[in-house]
Design a protein around this nucleic acid. Structure first.
Lengths: 329, 329
DNA sequence: ATATTATATGTAACCGGTTACATAAAACAG
DNA sequence: CTGTTTTATGTAACCGGTTACATATAATAT
């Protein structure tokens, strides 16, 4: 690999001049620049980013910590982030934390040591003090903003009310909710939205809460169980995977969806279109969330002014067959 | 951020001694080491990885180029790679190429400039000469090994024969194949497997080939089209997404799956369990493929001997409802 | 004609580590 | 008791860029 000194020698100039040509700053004579460029070409010279990073303390790299990329909510989010960062010439280091704070801490330390210019965190275990003392630009994604970091999240509470109200609107009166893990803030928000809507409809009943863990299989079992003892005509699942689980359970019991039991999920991941019947869901603007978070981070890194620190994006109800009781639409 | 010189000063030794403590090499007196460690602790010193990289020319980082992380085949693969690399203390830079060679080339150049220790490539547009001249450890994943790089792939040809034979085994005689894009080598291998099996069964007919592009929607349309003109009692889809498309098409036409038309997919991604009926599929050992590729890369990077250069992993038939004609199993 | 400013280029320190080499004391051998 | 080896530590060059500063010539102003 050629270095800047090789280029300088071949062009008959000093390294400073080559550097000036590369960075297009300072004074360089036109003729000289041509010679330098020719030398660069000839040697197929590419500046060493590491040396640059060491001196400039900026690596054009960011860290992205997600719980688990194989959870179908995240690929699109990650894709959005990578797309935007790529436009601004940043590369993305991907880390899976499994929601474990030690793993997260470890990753954050390593990322800091590698001089990443910033991080996007998608996590529940956020230890704010630890993150603060990293003293690195941070954006928090898909998590609430009870802190001073810029954040992007969808409106979980409102989405849950929307879903519940929709089931009510199609005639459901015994609406169960499959709740996500209690340690996941978003899952709790969705639960609160469901609870408040149910209360305001006068339909609230503790017994209608089904405990889920965001996984299909467990949700299916829990729903099978719940349907033994409870009369239910609508199910609002805390995420799409659990909605599929509910669907399978209901079908297994020989009940019809949506006639006997209507089902709505949450997230709007692609698989909701793949089931039969297709699942209604509350769709989060996943790509947009990622893209906004990435742009926020770039602004933070480059020291630009940030007009809006916290984004709460609207969600939309997607009506599909699993809640369509008026026949084919 | 504290530097090694701060530590040296506080401990009253030279930077060389601190470095020796950090890297556990050379001679260091026990007492001295204690003092140094205390100073490190006190200053919360973390060595600067970038400086280290510059000198040692190894960054403990690898590049991973995939076509598109939001394609459901890749998240699990990426997860496996990240898991294994994490064990060996490497971080992973994720790049989406969209199968475009310019984008790939760009990424590879940037990665090289950032001194990544190696790359895992998952791509069809592989320009071998360009990759060769990077002169960096490479592992090729999910792509055939018509080259000198270590590679990991599943047995597409055999899997396709297996799928076809399975449909035959449950009584299908008019077996259609939804083919993936012609420029995707794996899709062609699957097609060849289908063709050869059909020929050896004496069932081969050009007309049974349906052109797909790996997407659900297009496959659905193509199948709707095909079923107008052709008698078909079995469909082997080139991937799982297209199998879902086929399922939707068949159901829309009022035909029963598997009784009228049996369907089998390819890949074994999670969504095959989420449809109704659940889809039979040829399952690739996705996680294992990623893990093996990662371990191969580590060996290559660390200059260890590689016993086996090319891995062709076996696939397995997963029988589910979409090809089960003997009733509930 | 001289002072001032713009243009052009080079030298060397610096970023924060690693390590070859030099030096010296301690331990051991003959 | 001297020579060799082992242990312990420091100095400074090096990795490959960037940039502050010095220097010099050309252009412009006074």
């Amino acid at each position: 690999m050629a270095t800047i000194r090789d280029v300088a020698k071949l062009a008959g100039v000093s390294v400073a001049t080559v550097s000036r040509v590369l960075n297009q700053n300072g004074y360089v004579n036109e003729e000289t620049e041509k010679r330098v460029r020719k030398a660069i070409e000839k040697l197929n010279y590419k500046p060493n980013e590491v040396a640059r990073t060491l001196f400039k303390k900026t690596s054009k790299t960011i860290g992205l910590i997600v719980p688990d990329i194989s959870n179908p909510f995240f690929p699109e989010l990650v894709r959005a982030i990578e797309d935007v960062m790529n436009i601004y010439d940043y590369t993305v280091i991907l880390c899976n934390s499994d929601e474990k704070s030690e793993k997260e801490k470890q990753y954050m330390d390593v990322l800091k040591q590698k001089y990443v210019d910033g991080m996007i965190l998608t996590t529940n275990q956020l230890a704010i003090e630890e993150v603060m003392e990293l003293d690195i630009p941070i954006v928090v994604l898909d998590r609430p903003s009870d802190h001073s970091f810029p954040s992007v999240i969808a409106d979980n509470y409102h989405g849950a009310r929307l879903a519940t109200r929709h089931l009510y609107g199609i005639g459901c009166r015994k609406i169960a909710h499959i709740q996500g893990p209690a340690h996941v803030v978003n899952a709790m928000q969705r639960f609160y939205g469901y609870r408040d809507e149910m209360k305001s409809l006068g339909l609230w009943e503790e017994a209608l809460i089904i405990q889920g863990n965001y996984q299909l299989r467990q949700a299916k079992e829990a729903v099978l169980q719940a349907l033994q003892t409870n009369q239910v005509d609508g199910i609002f699942a805390g995420n799409d995977a659990m909605a599929v689980g509910a669907l399978k359970a209901v079908q297994q019991l020989g009940l019809r969806v949506p006639e006997d039991v209507a089902i709505i999920g949450y997230d709007g991941i692609p698989l909701t279109e793949m089931t039969t019947p297709e699942l209604s869901t509350i769709s989060q603007p996943i790509y947009e969330m990622g893209a906004i978070a990435a742009r926020l981070l770039v602004k933070k890194i480059e020291g630009q002014f940030i007009e809006q620190l916290h984004y709460v994006l609207p969600v939309t109800l997607i009506e599909r067959e699993s809640t369509n009781r008026r026949g084919k639409s």
